[in-house]
Nucleic acid binder design. Structure first.
Lengths: 339, 339
DNA sequence: TTATAAATTGTTATCCTTTTCAAAAAGGAT
DNA sequence: ATCCTTTTTGAAAAGGATAACAATTTATAA
């Protein structure tokens, strides 16, 4: 038990050759005679030799791994993004390590620190909701480690990003509600500083103005990102004299809250009140009624992010090629808005 | 840009002392004079020195990290388990790396391989549904790497485990249905070979016999682990002449299918048909009606698993102390079974 | 003042691989 | 047989840190 892993040295000794020869033979270096190469590879297989990635990384200064920081793992959106990243990483022979910031700045910083310490070859990250300072991101750049931000990004940061076309997506969602006959569409959103909130707001306003509808600021409700908060906000809105006839929620969580409140107050969905969410979360499909939502093509987001990262990693001459990829979202119409 | 990280050697040179002195000073070795210690630590902070974990791991043969393999990340159960593991790992100053097998044997093997290669100090794993061979698990043991299995385990494996008391939990769920007046309780389950399926089956049967109810094998339905499969199975069961008056589903996913089918057929829940699921998934709370379910205390499962692992890791003399921790589940009564 | 113990610091090997530079062996031409 | 290539292999340093052992300095006692 606890048998020491076999090293390149063991092979060298058994074959009475030098370690450098073994090292070269293992990577099929043509300088080594076919005979030796085969002998080495055969023995390596027999002994179940597996290179020590720590030693390799230490020597080559490359870990062949990339770090991914997401705000939450319990989220089908992020889980799918990770899958997309994984696919591309796989194709390049890279491993990925995922860690979650749990929407906390300190945790995010810790994760980044850990990845930098582990000498990751690149980092893909989505900012936590609490992130309002960017020193840790700057540190990554300073160390010359390629980085790509996705989904939750910041205009203050001059790095490659994969972003959703939030304005267009919100525009599509709101237009869909308008075309369904809605006249007064409430917008359930979160705190002001989040970039995607700003963009979706823009889409919301644009869609309204495109159809010649005046903006009613009182229909915009800032809530926390919880079902209960959205529920409360919806209750408030629906008990007004000129109540909204539709809700556009900035995510499915808030849409769920809106639906729960609407049902409790006895309004019919979608006849009296239509609802559209955002994200195409798993739950949105199984709610009663099922929730119309915007699918953000998360896997594609992941793939794009990984592609941008590998682009940077392959560009040796620290060409500060900062690029931005846009992934569009698709409207998925379900019972909550289908008339 | 791309400035080389500062090493122990840089500090040594700037201070005109040897690297070993620096190394010792940094870890507060009392052999080093307070004066030097402080000077070193001060400079280290100034230069933002951060030890290279690769080098440390290579030298000490310890990575100070543990690998976690889960069948899926998109699952609040596993996400919570991971959180529990993380807590305990944090307390011990360990990092964790999570990877998902996506319910595939090959991926699971690859993940394990990767972790072994990375010289993880321990591995915590939950078997994928597809895992029917255990060579990769044996390999872990052979290499002397501590391992703990949780949730999805196998009786064939002689390793430490954290298991749910599935039989007791199923017993509680079924008893609850019986006490609500159910007489014919259907059991929606999965393929036969899964250990927890077997155990929950045992609890199901025991609960029935405890109340003197004869087992009706035709009420046991094996479906795939999808909502649709459960929906279909439920449709079939409910359209029989002597239909069941309650469903016990082996997980919430299947319970959702059961509820959808029941509603479509126009039966009232819970009056005509009661439903209890398993896992306390996020969705179970927000379904209409909300679903009664068994909460498996996932965070506790994670903490227990980590504790067992650290126990093994601290027991130097390869004491094959194989232990098993049982985490009980709590019944959560919601609308789907509350009369 | 010197011998001796204690405190402090340095030297060097080591972890496992990769890689540069050098050396040896083999082949060919003269 | 000798010299020059071309192939093939080896020696050794490097990567960043730790630790056993050795060496040095300082303090203490005689």
């Amino acid at each position: 038990m606890a048998n020491r892993p076999v090293t390149i040295k063991d092979i060298a000794e058994k074959l009475s050759i030098s370690v450098s020869t073994v090292s070269r033979a293992l990577k099929n270096n043509p300088e080594i005679s076919l005979q030796t190469r085969e002998a080495v590879q055969k023995l390596a297989k027999e002994l179940k030799y597996r290179p020590n990635p720590l030693a390799v990384a230490l020597k080559t200064q490359k870990s062949n791994a990339i770090g991914v920081v997401v705000p939450q793992i319990v989220s089908s959106f992020y889980a799918s993004v990770v899958k997309g990243i994984e696919q591309v990483a796989d194709e390049h022979g890279y491993q990925i390590f995922v860690s979650s910031s749990n929407e906390k700045l300190e945790k995010e910083q810790k994760n980044v620190d850990g990845f930098l310490n582990m000498r990751m070859d690149g980092i893909i990250l989505s900012l936590s909701r609490a992130t309002n300072t960017y020193d840790h991101i700057h540190k990554i750049k300073e160390m010359g480690v390629p980085i790509v931000l996705f989904d939750r990004t910041s205009k203050e940061l001059d790095v490659s990003k994969v972003v959703a076309d939030d304005a267009a997506a919100a525009h599509a969602a709101v237009t869909h509600l308008l075309e369904g006959g809605a006249k007064r569409i409430a917008f359930l959103t979160g705190p002001e500083y989040m970039l995607y909130g700003v963009n979706r707001m823009r889409g919301y306003k644009q869609a309204l103005s495109d159809k010649g509808i005046d903006l009613d600021e009182t229909l915009i409700s800032r809530c926390e990102f919880t079902v209960d908060s959205a529920k409360q906000a919806t209750m408030d809105l629906l008990s007004r004299s000129n109540r909204p006839d539709a809700f556009f929620a900035i995510n499915d969580e808030l849409a769920i809250g809106a639906i729960m409140a609407t049902k409790e107050l006895g309004f019919k969905i979608p006849e009296e009140v239509a609802v559209v969410g955002f994200s195409n979360s798993r739950r949105s499909r199984y709610m009663e009624p099922s929730i119309s939502t915007m699918d953000q093509n998360p896997k594609l987001v992941g793939r794009e992010a990984a592609n941008l990262l590998f682009e940077q990693m392959e560009d040796k001459p620290d060409s500060d090629k900062v690029r931005e990829a846009v992934v569009h979202a698709d409207l998925i119409i379900r019972a909550s808005s289908e008339k």
